[in-house]
Simulated scan of single mutants.
Amino acid sequence: MPQPHEPTLADVARAAGVSLTTVSRVLNNRGYLSQATKDRVAAAIKELGYRPNQLARALHGKSTRTVGVIVPTVALPFFGELAAELEDALAVHGYRILVCNSMGRADREREYLDLLVSHRVDGIVSGAHNDEDLPEYGAIRMPLVAVDRDLSPGIPNVRCANEAGGRAATGHLLERGARRPALLTSRTGVRNRREAGYRDAVGGAGVEPVVLTVDFHTPVLLRAAAVADRLDPVADRVDAVFATDDLSAAEVLEWARGRGLRVPEDFKVVGFDGTLAVRRVLPGLTTVRQPIAAIARAAVASLMDQIEATAAGEDPRAALERVVELPGELVVGRTT
């Protein structure tokens, strides 16, 4: 028996008893059409299981109603929650998302960028954190927003107020009696605004900074050993840790428990992110909670502004804020 073919626009037109032009107008919501006609076309689409060819629409210069989202991996609580909030915020505007996990690899991020651009998505939100800057972002002339990452001059960056959050976390440790709080972070440097907040707080208290690093992309099974390798040599000199993400804070708590240190009496810990997943597992962790839903909404708002400007033939990033910072919230728990 011949296999049934994928329903086409012509099939929908025949089933609804209308012209191809009428079906196209219904799908694109253009021109005046009676409700009865719209209902007939909708019924035919449902009966046949017709799905518009988004790539073909893109090649004809039409919106695909799709946005690409690049993250390191949705397996990490922050990026999983961010992707979910972006999907929810975009759905309000009638857009769907394609989630791309770069897995911390620049080559994979390049491949996804090429894929998304070639498939003519309407915009891209990038929150990937790889080891190198990708010049390809500067060459992309389409709606584009970064989340907590400096991609290229002129590309909006929506993020938590990281420096203020780092200052609040470190200040809280000092207020709770810590005399030598250390920083545990992924990568030290001028771009690390949480580190800047930490250094500002300890500097103001006349305390020498102790900065420890465990790379963001360290495999999960190796992270505990890596954290221990950094903390063991300074165990007699530090009495607290501000970890710039909650998963690292969890590793610090395990390290302290394994060394017989009581938390918070002997050792205090503050994390950063405050995702729902980690709060369920470690409800007592003191952390700086990022406004993830608000970050997603602000990123989508910026993207929608760019999409509208592009449709009007204008520069999509001509009048947008370069950096949008949203305040985090210090949530005090039982680890301080």
Rank of each mutant, 00 (worst) to 15 (best):
P153K: 09
A311I: 07
P156T: 06
V241I: 06
V281L: 11
T170K: 04
H217E: 08
V190K: 15
A15P: 13
V281M: 09
L231R: 05
G165M: 02
A250S: 04
G328Q: 01
N28E: 06
T8C: 08
L151S: 11
A225E: 10
G177F: 01
V211F: 08
E329M: 01
A294C: 10
T22G: 10
E6F: 05
A89C: 10
T275W: 00
G260Q: 04
D229S: 04
D315L: 12
S118W: 13
R179N: 05
G171R: 12
A196L: 12
G333M: 08
D305S: 14
W255R: 02
E6M: 07
A243H: 02
R334E: 12
A294D: 15
T66P: 13
L282I: 08
A106E: 07
E87A: 04
N28K: 03
S152W: 12
A75E: 04
G204W: 04
R237H: 01
L221A: 09
L282F: 09
H60M: 10
A106N: 04
L9Q: 09
A312I: 06
V241D: 03
A228W: 07
D236A: 01
D236L: 00
H5K: 11
R187A: 14
A318L: 14
W255T: 02
H217P: 02
V18I: 03
I307S: 13
H172K: 07
L303A: 11
A319T: 12
Q3G: 07
A161D: 14
A164P: 09
R96C: 07
E85R: 05
